[in-house]
Design a protein around this nucleic acid. Structure first.
Lengths: 199, 199, 199, 199
DNA sequence: TATGAATGAGCTTTCATTCAT
DNA sequence: AATGAATGAAAGCTCATTCAT
């Protein structure tokens, strides 16, 4: 087999994997993590159940990868925001919150993340990895807040703790947005950011 | 005609029901709502699976009752705090947050509540009831905040929205406290309340 | 204990047994023999499940007794008809068919009888007893038919066989009358009897 | 892309379905419709319980299909007999009765049909479909009888009603033939047909 | 690689029967 | 006699995973 074919096969394989992961998060976001079956994901991907096992060795494996990519992506986006020197801290936090709350897929990620961390039947290594990446992802937010404090835009206090509170608040609000069962209280992002960045 | 003590039987029955509900919340808090089986709850209660159905007509029934009692209890405690005129708003919010974060059972309740609202396989009426009670339970918190605003202790803004943010923040933090997988960032309740009650 | 009390107890016991048997046939006729549970029958009788076992040693025992009494009753009524010398054979058969088809309880008995005879899980002795009593109950009908033949009212042929056909026809028609699922063909009893008693 | 022979797969699948349906009617005919479990049918088919659900989505689904095929087959055979111009009405009815009573599988079908129509726990749509097909299947028999009447072979009366009586008689007799519990009265088909086609 | 049939363990639920009171 | 809690075996069904093709 020519090297070109090997490379092509590798690319096809990676595309398949991405298709599966996209299907998985889509299914999870509509059926919940507990009710999302291999059959559902296979159907959503458009391939057979058996074929799924050529790309992932188990259902847990798929979930772990969905979470990994979701968290890596989250961290990446946050780093980009951190490096954007055109925005002040208020604007960064505002955009972060708006982006997060606007995208329905984040609802699914947040639920998965909480489920994974709090469910005993999820394997230890997955839970640990998720926790570790969450902790790592707090760092850029802490740096953003620290910068804001040095500019007098953000309230005093340990930046890491404030980052933890801020992210927990956004996550808490995200979880409230269950489709079809909305809490009848609107969310005012400006007001939320003002808690951390008072005028 | 019956040689049974009806009063005693009734009491025993109520105790059993409470044993089951306690076992259920214990199991759910360790295995997650999706993986908590009747078998698990029966074993935790110390009775047979079949006998569970003398007290609850289905698994959903148990879950609904656990949630109902948890939310009613929460609302009751919050109302007590609201009526306590010896405490100012800062103190009320501080005690509320401390109480909530200190009691490990609240972790389980918070997980159940989120699971119930976001899991499609949970029956509609349960999800609706949980959502409704959550909304109702926001009211005393909104009144506490409104009182704080009138005394100049709390930041400006719609009291109901602020209550929603505050409760979501506390819930978000609660969910982070997964036993064995703690985020290595300590929580400073005073600092959290200060976001809403700045000096 | 005085003899009077023993007799009274005995009478109470027999009434209870009859209450249970009546409840049983009522439940069976509405839920079907397969779905009729001890709990259903107990509730219909107005006593507790446990108490049922003071009067019958098993569910099969109840069913067997329902069948036994139903068949004995059937045989008794048939004998009365047989002895009624005021009616000719046509009139006897007509009244028999009308009586049988008019009383909804016979529908339940017929279904039970067929279920009992054709269901493997019904104990052997019950099935045998039902079959034996059915066979015995053919005799008075055969005698009625034989008498009719000697008077020239009934078609020729072995009286027992004709009795068998006649009863099977009535039973077959009875089974068709499933409440809510009637066959839209009316039954003309005169026409049926005329098959056996041509003008 | 698939290394499977789709044509062959489809054929194998259809064979499996037929195997299951055959096993089902076999089990039902020995245990009764109420006691026939998926486990029994699976064992009789020689496959696992879980695998049954690749071919039928529920137990009811299997029963419905068994009944449907049985009734369609019955109607088809009856239509063939109706179109056979070489036989007169007596001969047609005679052959119909002989065929039906000779084939033991008809005993099973008749039991299933009656059970389905008279058992409350059987879903409504199945009961309705069975009733409807039974009614439809009365039509060819009514036409056969009507033709016989116009030739003076059959007794007077509404042909549909007579068809109903005739079929009920044959069904009633069929149900009597419980293997191992036979009523000790022989059946003379000629004599039965003579009730409807007197000399 | 791709398929979907096949399996087996697990789930929730029902129910006849027993038992302590 | 009377109660209903308790049990355990069975039911129908689901699903992650394996396997032959």
């Amino acid at each position: 087999m020519s090297p070109r074919n090997i490379i092509r096969d590798q690319r096809v394989r990676e595309e398949r994997i991405e298709q599966i992961l996209n299907a998985a998060i889509r299914v999870i976001s509509t059926k919940g993590i507990g009710a999302a079956s291999m059959s559902d994901i296979a159907k959503a991907t458009g391939i057979s159940i058996g074929n799924m096992y050529h790309y992932f060795k188990s259902k847990d494996d798929i979930f772990a990868e969905v979470l990994r990519q979701g968290q890596l992506n989250y961290g990446h986006n946050l780093s980009l925001l951190e490096k954007n020197t055109e925005l002040d801290t208020y604007q960064i936090l505002h955009q972060f919150a708006c982006d997060w709350l606007a995208n329905p897929i984040n609802w699914a990620y947040t639920i998965m993340l909480q489920s994974a961390r709090t469910t005993v039947s999820v394997p230890h290594h997955i839970r640990q990895d998720v926790t570790d990446r969450f902790t790592v992802n707090l760092q850029p937010m802490a740096r953003i807040i620290e910068r804001g404090q040095s500019q007098g835009h953000v309230v005093d206090g340990d930046p890491l703790q404030l980052a933890f509170y801020f992210v927990s608040l956004i996550q808490g609000l995200t979880l409230q947005r269950a489709p079809g069962y909305e809490i009848p209280v609107s969310i005012n992002v400006d007001q939320i950011i003002r808690l951390f960045c008072p005028l």
